[in-house]
Simulated assay, not measured.
Amino acid sequence: MADKIRKTMVTFEVPAHTSPAPGDLPPGKYRGTKVERGVHMLGGLSWTAPTYKLEVPQQTLAKIAGMEDLLGLEMDVTAEVRAGEILVVGD
């Protein structure tokens, strides 16, 4: 049986300048996704810890040195969410 994937749109709040790779992210609210994987185990479906992807719009990238020419960027911010540096404030 195939694993299941649950993808939810969320809103992130970056309360202070944060530096997830590849750049310095200014404070503010950003859209993104939370992804959980369901794995079939004995006794039912077990969900993994979620991973988080934050979408950085072109207007924000234009203000970040070295990223001015990008049209958009999706960043994996799972470590920053788990450390409490970036907050999930809505879905």
Rank of each mutant, 00 (worst) to 15 (best):
M1L: 13
L45N: 05
P20T: 13
E85F: 11
D3K: 13
G28C: 01
A62V: 00
P50V: 04
A65V: 12
L73Y: 12
L25M: 08
G44Y: 05
P57L: 01
L45D: 09
T48Q: 14
E68A: 13
I5Q: 09
P50A: 03
T78Y: 09
E80D: 10
T33D: 07
M75G: 01
M67I: 04
S46A: 13
Q59H: 10
P57V: 03
P50M: 04
K53F: 11
L70C: 10
M1W: 10
E74N: 09
Q58G: 06
G28L: 00
G32R: 01
A83I: 06
A2W: 14
P26F: 02
W47N: 03
E68N: 03
E13S: 11
I64P: 00
L73P: 03
P26T: 01
D3I: 06
R37F: 08
K34I: 06
R37L: 10
L54F: 09
F12Q: 02
I86M: 02
T8Y: 09
G66F: 12
T48Y: 07
K29R: 15
P26Q: 04
L73W: 09
A83C: 06
T33C: 04
E55L: 08
V81G: 10
I64W: 00
P27M: 10
P57E: 03
Q59D: 11
G72K: 11
Y30H: 00
K34P: 02
K7I: 14
A65N: 13
L25A: 02
L73T: 07
V88P: 05
G44R: 08
L87R: 15
M41Y: 11
S46W: 09
A83P: 05
L73H: 08
R31E: 00
T51K: 12
G84H: 02
P22F: 00
G44E: 07
A65P: 11
V88W: 05
E55Q: 08
I64Q: 00
Y52H: 09
A65L: 11
K4V: 08
D91I: 04
L71A: 15
S46E: 11
L73F: 12
K63L: 14
M67P: 02
G84Q: 01
G43P: 09
T33Y: 10
G32Q: 02
R6G: 03
R82S: 14
M41F: 08
H17R: 12
P22G: 05
T48L: 15
R37A: 10
G32V: 01
Q58S: 13
R31V: 00
R6L: 15
A65Y: 07
L25C: 08
A21Q: 13
A16N: 06
T51C: 07
G84D: 03
F12M: 05
Q59F: 04
P50D: 02
T60W: 00
K63T: 15
V39I: 14
A16L: 03
K63I: 06
D3F: 11
L70H: 05
E36M: 14
V39Y: 06
L61G: 05
L71P: 10
V81T: 13
T51M: 08
H40D: 14
W47L: 07
G66R: 07
